[in-house]
Amino acid sequence: MQYEILSRPAASAAKLTLDAGESVTCEVGAMIAMSAGFTVETTSRKKGGGGGLIKGLKRILAGENLFLNHFTATAPNQTLIIGPGLLGDIIHHPMKGGTVVVQGSSWLASGIGIDIDATWQGLGKALFSGERMFWVKCSGSGDLFLNSFGAIYPVDVAGEYVVDTGHIVAFEDTLQFHIGKASKSLVGSFLGGEGLVCKFSGQGRLYCQTHNPPNFGKLLGPKLKPR
């Protein structure tokens, strides 16, 4: 499978080119356009079995869909264009074993060698990280496509790194994070507008997004005219 990410970072779409017999698993509703030579299969399982209803239900908790769409090319050189629901960026993360923990709704597509599951990150993170209660856990090998709100930037953390709540897209499971105050005093943290932050430690790659959907919603919502 070859990929190209178009019109980054504001209104990205991923153009995937697949050879006959190659498959890719996408988020429901992600397909924008495709060549005629694809078969589309919708299941709650991973392509080729594995997973099933329980994993599907866990994905719902993590903000994804019960169902997965599997696109399989039936002819050479077939193109599939996929994109996220919100305006934003797409990034390709090559997986060679290991696990990436993805913020709910940031998973866009992955190769069939990657297993999609949900994981619980603990009560503190569930309440205060600005993300969902459950996270999507992608493990295995292959191509992983993530989407964001705003632009995505990768950070290779070695040691410590601080991200504001709501700005995490994904991180490798070799990284640990906990919720902490932005500055030394709690009052200062809130007066400074930062409040709580996510403090990462360890070694691994972290993807952050430049904007966060809840803040955008809060900003825009009151200005919308009632219909």
């Binding site: 696990t99 923990v101 994981t119 990150q121 991180f171 499971d173 070799t174 990284l175 640990q176 994070f177 430690s201 360890g202 070694q203």
Partner: peptide
């Protein structure tokens, strides 16, 4: 040895100059 990771129970074995880590 170090312990951490997303689960909090991943064990990292590093060499002295941290050029190699097995986890």
């Amino acid at each position: 040895l170090e312990i951490g990771g997303a689960s909090g129970r991943m064990i990292f074995c590093r060499n002295r100059d941290r050029s190699l880590t097995i986890f």
